[in-house]
Write a protein that binds this DNA or RNA. Structure first.
Lengths: 217, 217
DNA sequence: AAAAATATAGTACGAACGTTCGTTTTTCTT
DNA sequence: AAGAAAAACGAACGTTCGTACTATATTTTT
């Protein structure tokens, strides 16, 4: 119902052609701006200036600002998927996959994939108390991600690689907490040590539930 | 240089009288609004409507929107201090104080002291990548809070109540992470279980470093 | 190359933004 | 009770917001 990555859906109505390229460029710029100034602070005028287009020309790609915000959210989700989720799938062991996800996540913060930090961390807090389609979309993606991570823990438990006592929900809650704390700390305090702190916390948490005691180092 | 809680500094220039009461009411409303719509989304017009004042009358209490944002931040800090920090000081043992702070913090989220969640969590992410006096103020308060908590860990260590291996920075990083994750999860997902998850994580972290094994329950 | 379809630009709109100004009302001081 | 000081108001400012319409370029299809 919500996956439309295959047929290359038209911009918003019945368009098909080269506008898709322009649209992608707009979204790329928009996602960067939104990570810094927020999804609401993102403005059609500023976005047009930044991309060198006219307000109306840009606006025509999206039916409304709200649709733009949703499109940006989906775009950011695709970036996150390519950058963090997909590479981790190459690992075979589910616990290794989980480790790869959290590591990739922290790296994605460290390398400033979005200049304002974690797009979803920022947008989630911004739209947390604003009901509407944008919040719904953010919820959807975050649920998706949480489920994915919880599934990995569950699988690891079934395969005997994670302790049977490990609580997937609790563990993922804490891992997400550590990553987002790094985001916060790096953004507000400009403190690069945050990454080290997050990594150490993550490693400790994962080490606690792992059955093969690779407590080396 | 930055503490002005004593002499009841005038509104912003040379004012003295009953305007202070109005100003407080404005700030109270403003803090609630800002926690939901953000410090930038906070608008003079909407704030005036909500308080039943005229735009210009309200505006006169602050020299500019930026000054309003700073004033709101300071006001929120005072609420947080009264609500979370001060009550915890009644505990005698530093580790008990730390526990009281984190417990109070989670309760302050649970009881929706600010309807949009943790004022500072939200504002910090919003202004993380926006240099200026507002971000500086947020940094100042968050630094203050972090220092306070780290000091408590340090004291506990000196008194032998916390393990000498306990790293104050790491521990406070993780505690803050758990609290903020509860904020995120409750705001975006509307999930009350977040508080339980946060509390469990916090208790586990504190239990790990406590020397008196009160692992009861 | 012509025709059709789409993408971009131009202009204009009403509303809301932060801010200024001069006036009126309220509060405090004497 | 009178006078001064401070607080609140109403109207207007220039700007930007999101959006709507129309017209011109540019692609794409025929």
């Amino acid at each position: 119902m919500m996956l439309e990555t295959q047929t290359l859906k038209p911009t918003h109505d019945g368009r098909r052609l080269k506008g898709r390229r322009t649209r992608e460029e707009i979204l790329s710029t928009a996602a960067c701006m939104a990570s810094q100034e927020g999804l609401e602070g993102l403005t059609i005028g500023k976005l047009a200036r930044r991309t060198g287009m006219s307000k109306s020309g840009l606006f025509a790609h999206f039916g409304s600002k709200e649709d733009l915000q949703i499109a940006v959210t989906d775009y950011a989700a695709s970036i996150f998927r390519e950058r963090v989720i997909k590479p981790a799938l190459h690992e075979d062991d589910p616990l290794a996959q989980l480790t790869a996800v959290t590591d990739g996540w922290v790296s994605y913060l460290e390398e400033r994939v979005f200049p304002g930090g974690c797009f979803f961390g920022n947008a989630s807090l911004e739209f947390g108390s604003r009901p509407g389609p944008v919040r719904d979309r953010l919820r959807y993606w975050m649920r998706q991600l949480t489920r994915h991570m919880e599934d990995l823990v569950e699988k690891a438990r079934c395969q005997g690689r994670a302790s049977p006592k490990a609580d997937p929900v609790q563990l993922v809650f804490e891992l997400h907490a550590l990553v987002q704390e790094a985001n916060y700390s790096f953004q507000l305090m400009d403190d690069k040590k945050a990454f080290q702190l997050a990594r150490r916390g993550i490693r400790a948490r994962l080490g606690q539930i792992s059955t093969q005691d690779l407590e080396n180092r």
